[in-house]
């Protein structure tokens, strides 16, 4: 979807239960978009996938669980060791399997 013009120093995070590497020095939302992860959450009202829309803290489409709290991914700088859960798998069982 996007390409990063200059690679930045990578950070290791736990993304949806899996160890992942994301580019550092930017917001969680930008780092996920840079690695092709465009879905930020499933809409709690429609169940449909969402992606970040405004990238400046307005739309809340990138709301995801970061280190235990629901945070706006576009307003949160990605950090080494972050635990990020988007809860984007369609049903609970998949979610559990994925985490295990």
């Amino acid at each position: 979807m996007f390409k990063q013009q200059h690679p930045t120093k990578a950070v290791s995070v736990l993304l949806d239960g899996r160890p992942s590497s994301l580019p550092g020095g930017m917001s969680v939302a930008a780092a996920l978009l840079a690695t092709g992860e465009i879905v930020s959450r499933l809409s709690p009202s429609s169940g449909k996938p969402c992606s970040p829309h405004c990238l400046m803290g307005i739309c809340y489409e990138c709301l995801m669980e970061i280190d235990g709290y629901q945070r706006q991914a576009c307003m949160t700088e990605v950090q080494e060791g972050m635990v990020i859960n988007r809860n984007i798998l369609k049903n609970k069982e998949d979610q559990h399997e994925h985490a295990a």
Binding site: A30, A34, M56
Partner: peptide, 25 residues
């Protein structure tokens, strides 16, 4: 407008400034 992949033009501009991201699709 709420489909994944539909974003603000200003948002794309922010991504370019903040992370050097540029659309490649």
């Amino acid at each position: 407008w709420n489909l994944p992949g539909v974003i603000g033009a200003g948002a794309a501009n922010n991504l370019a400034k903040e992370a050097g991201l540029q659309p490649d699709v």
